[in-house]
Every structure is written in structure tokens, then in C-alpha cells.
Write a protein that binds this DNA or RNA. Sequence first.
DNA 1: TGGGTCAGTGTTTTT
DNA 2: CACTGACCCA
Length: 630
Amino acid sequence: MPDSNAAQTDDLRNVMANCLDLDNPKSFFLFAGAGSGKTRALVDAMEMFRGRYGQEFRLADRMVAVITYTNAACDEIKHRIDYDSIFAVSTIHSFAWELIRPYHEDIRKWLRQNLEMKIDDLQKKQQKGRVGTKAAGERTVQIELEQKRLDRLDTIKYFTYNPNGENIGKNSLNHTEVIGIAADFLNNKPLMQKILIRKYPVLLIDESQDTQKDLIDAFFAVQSKHSGEFCLALFGDTMQRIYSDGKTGLKEAVPAAWEKPAITINHRCPKRIVSLINSIRSSADEHIQVPREDALDGYVRLFLIQDNEDINKNAIETEVFEKMAEITSDDQWSGESREIKTLTLEHHMAARRGGFNDFFEPLYRIEKFRTGLLDGTLNGIPFFSQRVLPLVKSLQTKDKFAIAQTVKKYSLFVSSDSLKTSESPLEKIRKADAAVQSLFSLWDGDSDPLLIESLKAVADSDLFAIPDVFAPIVYRADSEEEKKEPDDSTKTFDSNPEIDAWNEALSAPFSQIESYVEYISDRSSFGTHQGIKGLQFPRVMVVLDDNEARGFMFSYDKLFGAKVPTSTDVKNEKEGKETSIDRTRRLFYVTCSRAQSSLAIVVYTKEKQKIIDHLKNLKWFDDNEILDMG
DNA sequence: TGGGTCAGTGTTTTT
DNA sequence: CACTGACCCA
């Protein structure tokens, strides 16, 4: 018994080694639940392969392709395999793009067909639909847009695509198109299949349950046609499918001839949490995990809160932290220096709790700002995140070297070409110093100036170049100051929602940009339920709050019995399709299984009693684990 | 006028 | 996905 883990690991390694045999390749699906060391197994497989075929592959210019879901996972795996060049580790989008990018003529053909189909579809809808609605207006715009793309299709020499972020250029393909094209080419072009398997005789897919279903199907098709020369290996856990484009029924779709090893151990979670997640998934499938023998007992508590308009969620959640500290005797739940990961369903819920909502929310409302706001590339953000914020931080810590560095790198006074002009370098450095001091004076007496004030200070002293997006705002702020009574003529500035959004965001205190930057660089104590896929944290607080959430894909109220299943749910259930409850259960499973030592679940609801009753039936929690917070 | 049907509307996550 | 409301037909 003490060696059962080791025995299982050995078995798994044997199965994988047996499959990764190029003379007799066999495909497999490794079923690996939360905390089972899925990445470890993946890297094991890669290392075994390298040991056997590394030399040969290097000489023959062949590679093993490894596909991950996120850039973070991609970096992690590359790191763990020492950036070995026989492994092409990439996200599914990069991989798909690399596969199709040489075939511009085929892409053009696909795109023409696709655009014609889309336009046709939209026109049909336009005829059927009502006139004058918002949807009709959007359809008109969409048709025009697609028509324009169609018209200039022949003028495009090379298609472009950026796997990370937005694709707005005239020649660019979008994320969906790249996936669609790759799937289509793999399905229908025998040459494409040959190219794939010649270069990558082995293809490993991490998080396969969330990989776009069209591509998964295409890979399945390639494998079945070339089973003697191609090894497809899927790693994943069907219970952790939390994105809508993953393949439903992946487990059932795996061909019978494949190997289907499974890891049953959970290295991450303490005993209590393993038993909780086992209960949660027991209504979905048969898989049971066992904790490590040396696992701690761990703690789970569910806090129920009556949801009213006037409750102070931050205060309640702080109270939860303190209660958890008491229950677990773990100081890290308590006080200002606590180390807790709070998981909210949506970004704006994190923004509110993380204290950067005044800055975040106005910008988030602008649809086309969203991606850039979430990855920090939005025009205007680097001005703060890379120039003003680091400068202010080093001023606060009196780090003279860092101050000088930021000034030297970005300041208009000491940039390399301005040093050549008439003024003496010494004069310029003195001016830069004065500009820095005048900016920092805004923080005199420990105050927290508004972002707009810091922007104006920088603009007044010409310390840094002001991004174009801020020009109208600096101008507006100036003109309002001059004529204290704004008349109607200022209204002309107000017609641009993007400038308005920035104006509102910049009225937030400067400290909010710091919290925001922490959040988007994953250094904050917040994360979304979906975004923390694959990660783990010692102390986790999961916030369940349907009212504050805006999306409609998940309903914790239904999962916990505060709301009855709708007619669609009943219908889906009867037809054997997944319901919103199934979907929510999987997401809940993912969040709970992040915890390495203790887990607090905070439930805001208008139907506390119904939830209490429902939880009694579910038996997920012991009575003493449910705390009524009033 | 009542019932049935379906378009319209709001909107999250990852790349 | 769930809901609302416009519209059609009996």
C-alpha cells in the first residue's frame, strides 16, 4: 500500500512509453483529475520520448508538438523541458496558425467561401427579422464589413494573425477563423495531414477537454487515417471542461483501441477537500480521487449570506477571513498580511473587491477596450504602468537608481536625441529633476492624488510624452479650469464615449492603477473562476454571487437549489444534453479543487433557507461546515 | 382575446 | 440561456 502511488506512476510511465513507440505508435487519453500531476505526466512523457528519439529527431528535423490552452501553461512546459528544440510547445492558436500560414491561396479560398456564407446568412436573417431594431442595425453594419473584406480579398498578398490579442488589421484573420481553417484543412486536405504527421509524428494536447472541438475532431480524423505513423495523446479531465468550445462527450469519443490510463491520486488537496470534490463530481461521473497518504486533513467551510442591497461585501468577506483563521489556526487567513486567493466569477467583481473598480469599470464598459484593458496593452495604460507608476513607486521608496533609470529611459529631457540640442546636459537633468519633484509633490502628506492630476503634472512639466488618447483629456481639464463655469460649448467634447470613459477612469485615485496592474499581472489576490485553470493556492475563498455576476452561462443559484431548474434544463436533461447546472457544477469543481490547505465558500443568496435544505440533500458538507452569516 | 412562436436583448471566460 | 414582447392566427 505505501508504494501504490509509485506503482501507479510506474504503470503510467510504462503505458505511455509503450504508446510513444514510433515503430508501433498507439494513441492514448490520459485521464488526470485536479492536482494529479497532469503536467508532471506530460513532461514525463516528453522526457521519455527525448531519451529514446531525441538524437534521431534532432538530425531529422522532426518534432513533437505540444499544445496547451494558455500562454502561461505553454511557458511552464517549455521551462520544464529546458526549452529543448525538439519540442514545439505552443498554444492551440499559435499551432493552428503555424500549420496554415504558408497556404495563402487556400486561406483566401476558405475565407471567400466563409465570408459569402456569412453574408448570405446575415441577409436571410435581415429579411426574416424586424426592421429598425438594434439587431437589424448591427446586421447592416456586419454585412457591410464582411462585404468589404470580401471585396478586397484579392488584394491581400499575405494574411496575418497575432495569436495573443486583437487582430484588427486589414489583412488579419481572427481567432475563430484560424481555428476553423486549420480544422478544415486537416479534415479535407490529405497533403495537410501528411505535412502534419511528417513534421510532428507525435502530438500531445494538454487540457484536451477545453480544446476547440472542431480541431479535436480533425485530430481524431487524422489519427484514424494514419494510426500507424501518428501518435495522438490527450491529457485532461472531462469534469474540468469550463469553456464552451470544448468537446462535449470527449471521453466517449475516444476510440476503443486507444490506451486510457488514469491517475487517481490527488497530490494537491488535503483529505477533506478531496472528499468534497469527489462528492461534487459524483453526480456527473464515476471518477474518484484519493488523497496522498501524507495529506493533511484540511478545512472546508461554506458561509451563507442573505443578499440585500445594503450589505457590505468587503466587510463580510473580511469577517470570513477572520473566521477561517480561527477555524484553521492559520494566521495567513488573518490581518493585512494575509495570503488568500479570492475567486470571483467575473473581472468586475474582482475589481470591486480589489479596490480598482473606479478606474476599471468605465474602461471595461467600452467593448473594444476590453482585451487591451485585461492584458495591459490598451493605448494609454503603458503610460501609467511603465512610466508614472514605477517612477512614483521608486520615489516613495527613495530608490534613486530606479528613479534615474525610469527618467533616463522615458523622459523627454534626457532622451538621446534631446541631449544633443542646445541646452546643456546639466541644465536638462536639473529640469528633469524639477519635473520629477513637482510630480511627486502630489503625494505630499501621504495623499493619494487622482490619476488625472498626475497626468496633468506630467503634461505641464513635459516629463514624459503624453499618449494621443489623453490629449483631449488634458485639454478638457485645462479648459474647465480656465472657465470655471463650463458652458454649452464644452458639450462638443462629450460626444465621444471613449474619451468620456477615460475621463471617468482618470478621476479615480492614483492608487487604483497600482492595484489594477497587480491584478492584470496575476500578482493580486484575485482571480476569476475560469482564469485560474491549472493553478493552485494554499488558502482559497470562492465567491458565489449570481446577482453581482452579469453573464448567463452559470447559475450557482440553480446548483445550490435556490432556483428550480428551468424548462430548458428539464428538456436538456431529458435529451441527455448538458444543462446549465452541469456546467456550473464543473466550474465549482474547478474552483474548489484549487485549494491546497483550506477552502472558504461564500454564498450570497436571496433564498438562504432553500439552499440550506438543498445542501442537506446533497450531503457535500457536514452540518458544522455550513455557517450562517445572517 | 388567448395562445403559440420567434426575434430581440443582455453579456462572461480563454486565445 | 432566460426572459420579454411583438406579431400572427384562430
